[in-house]
Design a protein around this nucleic acid. Structure first.
Length: 694
DNA sequence: GATCCTCGAGTTCG
DNA sequence: CTCGAGGATC
């Protein structure tokens, strides 16, 4: 049986109902965990996620607490990993590098603080003891030894007692000082500084782009990339990777350099280390709980991965009083965020048909909890994406919730293969209409080119009704599918022939809802021309291009008469888009659709407010703006409309040609980019002032 | 012909 | 948000 199969069995074993059962589960857990730890620490190729590993360890710990008589000397709860590789020189840590106990929610954090209070015989009425809070960087712990202020040795954590000598590699990291600065705080003759080596997200993306360009396998995540980079025997390779380092603690010292954790960080800062800026010290545990929950939602805003918050009793004197349990200090705890990355099995790959006929593969996953939600589907983008990552059906795959929400299959875990996995191939025919698919030489996507494909038509109807197009409230995916499948809608104009009675025949419609929807359809007749043009779903004509076209052509009729030359004359329209438009209007069916829409009272001419902005009294003329984050009163689209009304351009990404960045709360990467390029930043008030308040 | 900027298209779960 | 590709620009 493979390790993964045994793991699944252990995971699914119910709580023991006898001593014998408890013992056999404990033995199985020890065996499975030991093997996983080896894979993790030695081969750097985990089969299961850290979260899954943690769950198993906690289960073993609980059983050991309940049945201490079965506690085995070789239980992985005694150790944090296994012996380091042979290829690097082994290094004994002067004082073991401990791991931390975990807290998975606010109550566990409070329980930890309570235990500290009891052990310290803290006055029940008093607040405290004070705690420090630091972000838990998802990187690799290392210990740096300085003698007479000079870096002489750097070691990985290894199993906590023995690590690997990686001095040459650490020296390549710019945020690690090679000589300490003693001008502000005296430096002991010999000092060990501990911290985390990590891969900034931006540098990680750049590295993966480079690896892909060389047709090498990209790293699954920044932590793996950091591990892989530190493990290079050739330190010149490490030097080419933009690793960084945050210092967070001291090893054994002869004389104390500060009274507590928070103050000690300032000393480290004075010595020349980079200290994570998001540190705090609180008098009570409740503020620390708030700190943790705040960061749970904000962690994506950082340029490095964090997987939790480390909470420590701040005062070193109290820390000593609390002491350690086997391999973890009592005075510190790791508050763990819900995992955002996990491994699961890829059950199959389905394909979707988009509105344009584009075929996108979609992963069908064994449901897995990631970041508090259950993920069972994820996009796989296209056939090349699957091939480049060597993803096969049946594989164990790493699934991540990128950005804020959207799950993606990041990598496969080939080590977990049993041999029964099968490579996937793009089907030759459309899953909806069975017509052959086409893939243009040199392009990535496959298309169903059947103009009458029902799947495409459903997506087109949905798009037509969507918020950025005709904005028909209550008209979504489900209704589009129902109406098309019931044969009630065979082309777009049919939407305007719907009556409340038609809708009553469908599932989930009562009189009132049906009437409301028909009223919504009716209201959409007077939408601006650009929205209609966008809604028609002409390839390459998105929202922006539709708006640009409407500036030059004042009706559907004018557009239909335009030839390729007239179209390419418009700024932003090239041959491909022109061709797409000419081809669309060349089809008799499409011309009929426009004519019928007009007959049904749908607006097919430019509205006065869409007319090209005239005059040079426009405050934003010639200026390009980018909006990011949440503004206090304006919505994002409102802000963009405001800019356009005043002759400005509302672009979607920051570049050298951007004149202003309008920034609200929780800005994304755009803010960093703007800062890099030195682009002036406005807040909402600044924008309104510049534009004239009217 | 290469490079940079923008736009289009598709995307998950509750 | 991410990826790929169209368009403009040098």
């Amino acid at each position: 049986m493979t390790l993964l199969e045994r793991t699944r069995i252990v995971q699914n074993t119910p709580e023991p109902d006898s001593l014998a059962a408890a013992r056999s589960i404990m033995d199985a857990l020890v065996a499975v965990l030991t093997e996983h730890a080896e894979r993790y620490y030695q081969d750097d190729a985990p089969l299961i996620s850290d979260a899954e590993y943690d769950v198993l360890v906690r289960r073993l710990q609980a059983l050991e607490n309940a049945h201490p008589e079965f506690l085995r000397p070789d239980s992985p709860t005694h150790r944090v990993g296994s012996a380091p590789l042979d290829s690097f020189e082994k290094v004994q840590h002067a004082e073991a590098m401990l791991s931390l106990g975990n807290a998975f929610d606010a109550d566990e954090l409070r329980a930890w603080h309570d235990r500290c209070r009891r052990r310290l015989e803290w006055d029940a009425e008093a607040e405290g003891p004070a705690v420090s809070t630091e972000l838990k960087i998802d990187g690799l712990a290392v210990a740096l030894t300085y003698e007479n202020g000079v870096l002489v040795r750097a070691a990985t954590r290894g199993d906590g007692r023995v690590g690997e000598n990686i001095t040459a590699n650490i020296r390549t990291i710019r945020s690690v000082p090679l000589r300490l600065d003693s001008s502000r705080h005296p430096v002991p003759d010999r000092v060990e500084v501990r911290g985390e080596v990590y891969f900034p997200k931006s540098a990680f993306e750049a590295l993966n782009d480079r690896l892909r360009a060389q047709e090498l396998k990209p790293f699954a995540n920044p932590r793996n990339a950091a591990a892989g980079s530190l493990r290079q025997l050739d330190s010149t390779i490490t030097a080419g990777r933009d690793l960084a380092f945050f210092a967070y603690s001291l090893g054994p010292v002869s004389e104390p350099v500060a009274a507590g954790q928070r103050a000690m960080l300032d000393v480290l800062d004075g010595w020349g280390f980079s200290i994570n800026p998001e540190v705090a010290r609180f008098e009570g545990i409740e503020e620390a709980v708030t700190f943790c929950s705040n960061w749970t939602g904000k962690r994506d805003a950082l340029d490095y991965e964090i997987d939790g918050v480390v909470v420590k009793i701040d005062d070193f004197r109290l820390q000593r009083q609390l002491g350690n349990v086997s391999n973890a200090p009592r005075w510190a705890v790791a508050f763990k965020f819900p995992a955002r990355e996990s491994t699961t099995r890829l059950l199959g790959i389905l394909v979707n048909v988009g509105r344009t006929g584009m075929i996108t593969p979609e992963a069908e996953l064994e449901p897995v909890q990631i970041g508090g939600v259950t993920v069972s589907q994820a996009t796989l983008h296209n056939a090349d994406y699957i091939r480049d990552r060597d993803i096969r059906i049946g594989d164990t795959v790493v699934v991540k919730r990128a950005g804020d929400v959207i799950p993606a299959v990041v990598a496969s875990v080939p080590e977990a293969r049993t041999g029964s996995e099968v490579a996937w191939e793009m089907p030759g025919t459309c899953p909806a209409c069975q017509q052959p698919l086409e893939r243009i030489e040199g392009e990535v996507d496959s298309f169903c080119v059947n103009g009458a494909c029902p799947a495409q038509f459903i997506r087109l109807v949905e798009h037509f009704a969507s918020r950025d197009a005709m904005d028909i409230e209550g008209f979504g995916t489900k209704l589009a599918a129902q109406l098309v499948e019931a044969g009630r809608i065979a082309d777009l104009p049919d939407i305007y022939g719907l009556t409340p009675d038609d809708l009553l025949e469908l599932d989930g419609f009562a009189r009132k809802k049906a009437e409301k929807l028909v009223a919504g359809i009716d209201a959409s007749r007077s939408r601006p021309l650009a929205r209609l043009l966008f809604g028609l779903g002409i390839r390459h004509v998105g929202r922006t291009t539709a708006e640009v076209l409407v500036q030059q052509f004042d009706s559907m009729a004018a557009l239909g008469k335009a030839d390729a030359d007239a179209l390419t004359a418009v700024d932003g329209i090239g041959e491909v888009i022109a061709r797409s438009l000419v081809d669309w209007f060349a089809l008799e069916t499409n011309r009929k659709i426009v004519a019928r829409l007009a007959d049904l009272g749908v607006n097919v001419a430019r509205l006065p407010e869409e007319a090209p902005a005239a005059g040079d009294d426009l405050p934003f003329a010639g200026k390009t703006f980018v909006v990011t984050g949440t503004l206090p009163t304006l919505g994002r689209t409102e802000a963009q409309d405001y800019i356009k009304q005043r002759g400005g351009k509302a672009a979607s990404s920051v570049s050298a040609r951007t004149d202003y960045l309008v920034m609200g709360e929780n800005p994304g990467s755009k803010a960093d980019k703007a800062a890099e390029l030195g682009i002036p930043v406005l807040d909402e008030a600044g924008l309104l002032e510049l534009g004239g308040r009217s």
